[in-house]
Design a protein around this nucleic acid. Structure first.
Length: 910
RNA sequence: GGACCCUUAGCUCAGUUGGUUAGAGCGUUUCCUUGACAUGGAAAAGGUCACUGGUUCGAGUCCAGUAGGGUCCACCA
């Protein structure tokens, strides 16, 4: 076996093992009868996406879950994939065309889509290769893309089904229109942003009372040409006599009525509201109530059209805003303007203000809303952290129909055909359901020459909402069997960000409940049993990571600098459950350092003695002689069991960073800083050496297994180097990790169950060593290893010291510890094992020594009085549990004894 | 307007049913290249747990309120 190198060099190790895993099929999801399944579907990143630190966190967690599940003996399946991301991808390709001074219309629909596919083949989906560098153990053979023919067919199938079930309809409604992408958006794709604008005060002159005016306030004077009324509150006394009268519209001059409507807030401004039904949702509703005409003065790209009047027609909306204000200033209609901040809806993708726009769109009445609520409320689906369920339920309580059509070309074209010659916008509700006029099917009409297909495509989320089951062959029985649907569905855990709880999580739940396993209980139809919401990773200043800020580190650079394992461990250790995360590169460095520590501890094991039979836990246990255990052996096994127990607990509670920290602390502090150090003495003696090496093997083997989900590459490498894979060098991925109780049973059956009191004595010795080192450091002897120590103590403490003398001397850096009856004039410290003196040849600085001891006495006195007060409290004594009471009494006794000894020391210094 | 989250060491954060003297990493100070590791080791300094009140024998932890910061939902022109 080659010697382990001095420091861990990740690059080659990562490359080697990733290839080996792919080669051996370690990531393949296999239906294994009799074994529990554990499946995860990856939230499909956008095909345009590049790996950022958020993906790293998200996918590391998924990888941890799936690798741990495999080690627990479950059959794991992690399905990767890509989202076609309609608007984003189309925008990327159109941007490319623009460089050639072309638009998609120059190419035509078919050619354009072909161009997008070309782009996808050449540049799309690089993110999946980047995930391989991270070590993601996906079943890559099952990678799916939402625009793949098979997946697309499933999307279309769902549309037609929902249409037939009466959930989908076409309707002319106010939508959020993106003037940049030229498409409708769902409410979820609109982001409200506070914007600084101007509130314009405009007066409308009464037609039959020249010189009298009604004043309104507006932030959008350019829409005045579309005004069809002025509305006031019916009970507003100021306008009581005016209702029904007419005023002059100041732009695109014409007469419009004053109407009364409850929607008007009399307390806002003048209490009069201009009504522009084509350009405001509330105004539209008012218009409907009063049968007002709709004057749409905007083009699709938000320039003004001829209905806006000759002065404004053709202008861009913001220029028109200025211009209209100027025009009204000239005419005297504008009587004031003031700076004003209001919320404006922006298109999430294009980042421009949306326009409310009346258009024909396809709408979905969500299916299974009540059941979707029940699924989470009744715990069939568990959210982690649980509080997100409230957000989810609130959204479902107030859910609105979903606008699923998009005026794009890249996407799933809606499977609706209109009979040629019909005006689709003139069809009545009944005609839309008439198969002789409107055809809806997966395959299309048999006589396509007589039909025209709908131009619109589906919202991207109206394809990805099927992800958990459409990636498993649904609805085709043969494909479902091939993909193991029966075995792997529902999936176990979804790992995602809370920002897409509405976009994706809630919709997946509804789709799954509607379409999977009809007639079966809800627990069989849910798409996943758990949803783990990650935090959002922010930069050191707390800002969101974003391309435009340039504050997002490139994960590939981080992998180069710290290794994939270092990155994974670092990221997971700063990602507590449920909170946003400040990215700190030094924590990634810490991950790297931990890997190096692990590496070197294994190196130490290798250098300490020949590998015994390491092929199985049983083989290692066979090398152990429990009768030769000393306190340190008991302690490290005890700690190993509790670390195992803690990790078990963390996995059931989705506390990954706590698990990582527990392993970090155990391995670094308990194993490296103590056990490995005491091993250096134990290895000197043939009597203790074999046991010590076997225990190291036991600890290292288990630690590698516990750590493997977090840091897969290095653990696999060390597993091989130390021979834990046995004669046929099997991979760590093929092994199993045992839980704490099984480990305890295995040790117990060998008579090697760790003894708690022995383990506790090690804590006492650690404190003793630490105090000895501190005593040396106080007197500038920290680096000396030849100091002599003297101890005044009782028989039992002394026997513990004697029994562990060589280790204690090595750990404390002392040449000897001798037992004394009395010592005078030497610096000392009071330990739980007696009063420890430093044998100083030189004279002691009595003043400094007295000051130090006095300070310690004072600090102790505070604690003593606190404990005394508690014990003096009758209520405490009568109500506190016996264990707490006992603890307090014991503590007081110890504190008092220590204080007395310190007082004695102080006196002895004169 | 509604809901939720956060405030603990210089910095970034843990702290799981309330119970000894509140922890980690980084940073700082001092010392150490001793044959696993300087990507390391040892020691040390540093916190009235935002504030106020309540419940309790006992509160960083539970409850109410206040202040500051953040997120989501709704949105009045």
């Amino acid at each position: 076996m080659p010697e382990i190198t001095k420091s861990y060099e990740p690059r080659e190790v990562e490359k080697k093992w990733y290839a080996a895993w792919l080669e051996s099929g370690a990531f393949k999801g296999k239906v294994a009868a009799g074994r529990e399944s554990y499946s995860i579907v990856m939230p499909p990143p956008n095909v345009t996406g590049v790996l950022h630190i958020g993906h790293v966190l998200n996918n590391t967690i998924q990888d941890i879950l799936i690798r741990r599940a495999r080690l627990e003996g479950k059959s794991g399946l992690w399905i990767p994939g890509l989202d076609h991301a309609g608007i984003a991808t189309q925008a990327v390709v159109e941007r490319g065309l623009r460089k050639e001074k072309k638009t998609r219309h120059d190419l035509g629909r078919e050619k354009f889509i072909e161009t997008v596919w070309e782009w996808r083949r050449e540049k799309g989906g690089t993110i999946l290769q980047q995930l391989e560098r991270l070590g993601a153990s996906c079943d890559w053979d099952r990678t799916q893309f939402t625009m793949d023919p098979a997946y697309s067919a499933r999307v279309i199938k769902v549309f037609t089904e929902l249409f037939q079930r009466g959930h989908i309809y076409r309707g002319k409604r106010m939508v959020n229109w993106c003037p940049a992408s030229l498409t409708a958006l769902s409410d979820e794709e609109v982001i409200m942003k506070p914007s600084n604008g101007t509130l314009y005060k405009v007066r409308y002159e009464l037609v039959d009372a020249p010189g009298q005016f009604v004043q309104v306030s507006t932030t959008r004077p350019e829409t005045i040409p579309g005004d069809v009324a002025i509305a006031v509150h019916p009970d507003d006394p100021r306008y009581a006599g005016m209702i029904g009268k007419k005023v002059w519209r100041p732009l695109n001059r014409g007469q419009i009525p004053i109407i009364a409507d409850q929607a008007v807030d009399p307390k806002f401004g003048s209490g009069a509201l201009k009504i522009t039904p084509a350009h405001d949702k509330v105004d539209y509703e008012v218009g409907q109530r009063h049968a007002l005409p709709i004057v749409d003065i905007l083009n699709a790209n938000a320039t003004l059209n001829e209905l806006a009047g000759p002065e404004l027609a053709g202008m861009e909306r913001f220029a028109a805003r200025k211009k209209s204000a100027e025009l009204m200033k000239e005419s005297g209609a504008l009587v004031g303007e003031e700076p004003y901040q209001n919320n404006v809806g922006y298109s999430e993708r294009a980042d421009v203000p949306i326009e409310p726009r009346l258009t024909w769109q396809w709408w979905l009445r969500y299916p299974k809303i009540e059941e979707a609520k029940a699924a989470v409320r009744d715990g069939h689906i568990r959210f982690h952290p649980e509080r997100w369920s409230k957000v989810y339920l609130h959204w479902l309580e107030n859910i609105q129909d979903w606008c699923i059509s998009r005026q794009l070309w890249w996407g799933h074209r809606i499977p609706v055909w209109y009979r040629k010659g019909l005006d689709k916008d003139a069809l009545t509700e009944a005609e839309l359901k008439d198969p002789t006029k409107v055809h809806v099917s997966e395959k299309g009409p048999s006589d396509p020459e007589n039909w025209v297909q709908e131009d619109d495509v589906l919202d991207t989320w109206a394809s990805s909402w099927l992800w958990p089951f459409a990636t498993m062959g649904w609805p085709d029985k043969a494909e479902m069997a091939r993909d193991g649907f029966d075995y792997f569905y529902p999936t176990e855990t979804l790992v995602t960000g809370p920002d897409i709880i509405f976009f994706w999580v809630a919709r997946m739940i509804m789709a799954a409940l509607e379409f999977t396993r009809p007639g079966e209980p809800i627990g069989r139809r849910i798409p996943f049993k758990n949803v783990y919401f990650t935090g959002i990773i922010r930069d050191a200043q707390g800002r969101k990571m974003s391309k435009s800020l340039g504050n997002s580190p490139d994960p590939l650079d981080l992998i180069d600098a710290y290794g994939a394992d270092g990155l994974r461990f670092g990221v997971i250790s700063i990602a507590p459950q449920g909170q946003d995360i400040r990215f700190q590169e030094d924590r990634i460095e810490q991950g790297k350092n931990f890997c190096n520590k692990l590496w070197n501890a294994c190196r130490f094991r290798q250098m300490s003695g020949p590998a015994g039979d390491n092929s199985s836990p049983g083989a290692i246990l066979g090398r152990i002689t429990p009768s030769k255990f000393d306190a340190d052996d008991h302690a490290i096994l005890d700690r190993l069991l509790s670390a195992t127990r803690e990790v078990d607990r963390c996995f059931t509670g989705f506390e990954f960073s706590a698990a990582a920290q527990a392993l970090y602390g155990f391995f670094w502090n308990d194993f490296c800083d103590w056990y490995v150090e005491v091993s250096k003495s134990k290895l000197q003696s043939e009597d203790t050496k074999a046991n010590c090496l076997a225990i190291q093997d036991l600890v290292l083997r288990q630690t590698l297994l516990l750590l493997h989900p977090f840091i897969p590459f290095i653990t696999e490498e060390l597993w091989a180097q130390l021979g834990y894979g046995g004669a046929n060098a099997s991979s760590i991925t093929e092994s199993t990790v045992e839980d704490a109780s099984k480990c305890a049973t295995a040790l117990g059956s060998l008579g090697a169950a760790p003894d708690a009191s022995q383990a506790a004595s090690v804590e006492t010795m650690k404190a003793f060593v630490s105090q000895a080192r501190a005593l040396k450091a106080e007197h500038n002897l920290a680096s000396r290893r030849d100091v002599k120590l003297m101890l005044i103590t009782g028989d039992s403490a002394w026997s513990l010291i004697e029994g562990n003398l060589s280790k204690l001397l090595r750990m404390a850096g002392a040449a000897e510890i001798t037992r004394r009856e009395a010592v005078d004039g030497a610096p000392a410290t009071v330990t739980a094992l007696g009063t420890l003196y430093l044998d100083l040849a030189s004279s002691v600085d009595v003043g400094a020594e007295k000051a130090r001891i006095t300070k310690e006495i004072e600090a102790l006195a505070k604690h003593i009085s606190g404990t005394e007060a508690r014990l003096a409290n009758q209520a405490f004594v009568s109500k506190a549990p016996p264990a707490v009471l006992e603890g307090a009494r014991k503590q007081l006794a110890e504190q008092q004894a220590k204080s007395a000894e310190l007082q004695r020391l102080l006196k002895s210094l004169g």
